[in-house]
Design a protein around this nucleic acid. Structure first.
Lengths: 155, 155
DNA sequence: TTTTATTTGATTTTTATTCTCAATTAAAAG
DNA sequence: CTTTTAATTGAGAATAAAAATCAAATAAAA
C-alpha cells in the first residue's frame, strides 16, 4: 500500500473529502522525505503550480493531516511548526533528530534503540506509550571540523 | 553549591546584573520542581508579591535564563513555551517527559537509559551531543483505569 | 557619591495561527 | 447525468505569544 493509498483511506475513514488542495499538500510533503517544511514554506511550494490556494487552507490541511496521523508536527524552536510525512512502511518506530547548535542543520537517525526505556516506562509507570519524539542538540561533524581548523589557523 | 549560587555565578560570568526581578523569577521556577510554567503563569505568580513587575520582563528574563542554561524551554504544543529549572546537581543527564493524550498531564521519568543510543550517534554520525529532549505520548495509568471502568459500565 | 551601562515597565509592533463567512465543490442520492 | 447536501475553500479580519521600542530607573563599578 502506497503512502497515497493510506492517505486516501484515512481521509475516508475519518469522513473527510479528497480535495485538490489536500492532494497537492500531500504530494509536496510526501515527495520530500528528510525535509521539515513550515506552513509558509509549503505555501510557497504550493503556489508554484496552484497560486489560487490560500495560506489558511495550508494551515487547515496540515492540522487535519496531523489529526489523521498523515504527518508529524515538529518543533525546533524557530518560531513555527514544521512537518514531516509519517512514513508508514517502517511501522516499528520513528526516527530521531539531531539539531546542530552551530549551523542549525537537522539530521535524521534511523536507529531507534528505545526499547529498554519504553519497557521500563510501561512497567514502572503503567504508561501506555503510543509515540515519542527525541531530539539531540549538539555539534555536527562538519561544524566540528570547521572549529578545529579555526583553532589551528589562529594559533 | 546551591542552585541559587550557580545562578548568581552564571549571571556574573555572562556579565549580567542580579536584579530583584531576576531573583523573583528564579525563586518561583526553582521552588517548583516538577512544574512546567508558561510565561503568563509565571507572571501571575510573580504579581502576588511584586505587582510592579511587567510581563515583558518575564519574557526577557526567561530568554536570558535559557541562554545561560538556568532553565530549559519545553514545548508541549499548547500554544506557549514552558520552562523548568535545569537541576544542576544531577549533571549526568536530563529526565524525560510523559505526555498523557487523554488528560494532558505531564509526568517525569528520572531514568535516562540513552547511553547506547548516544554512543551510537557520536560514533556513527560524528555528532557531539550536548543535550537532548525526549517526550513519550500515550495514556497514563489513571486514564487507563478510567477507560477500563467505562467499558465495564457500558457492557 | 558619582558615573555608566544595563535593565525595566508600559506600550506598541510583529508574526504565526485561527476564525469568519459567503462562495465553491466533492460526493452521495435520485 | 442532474440535483442535493454538507464539507471545504479563499480572502481577509481577529487572536495571542513573543519581541521591539524608548524614556525612566537602578545595579554595580569607579
Amino acid at each position: 500500500m502506497t503512502n497515497f493509498e493510506v492517505f486516501k483511506e484515512r481521509l475516508n475513514n475519518a469522513g473527510f473529502k479528497l480535495t485538490t488542495q489536500r492532494r497537492v499538500v500531500f504530494d509536496i510533503i510526501n515527495s520530500n522525505e528528510g525535509k521539515h517544511y513550515s506552513p509558509e514554506e509549503i505555501y510557497e511550494l504550493v503556489k508554484v503550480d496552484h497560486p489560487e490556494i490560500g495560506l489558511a487552507t495550508i494551515y487547515r490541511t496540515l492540522k487535519l493531516f496531523e489529526k489523521i496521523a498523515i504527518v508529524y508536527r515538529l518543533n525546533f524552536n524557530d518560531g513555527c511548526s514544521r512537518f514531516e510525512m509519517n512514513h508508514f512502511e517502517d511501522k516499528s518506530h520513528r526516527h530521531h533528530h539531531l539539531v546542530c547548535l552551530d549551523c542549525g542543520k537537522i539530521f535524521e537517525v534511523k536507529l531507534d534503540l528505545l526499547q529498554d526505556l519504553e519497557g521500563y516506562i510501561e512497567k514502572e509507570y503503567g504508561f501506555e506509550i503510543h509515540n515519542h519524539t527525541l531530539k539531540f542538540y549538539g555539534v555536527c561533524n562538519e561544524c566540528k571540523q570547521r572549529r578545529k581548523k579555526c583553532k589551528k589557523e589562529t594559533t
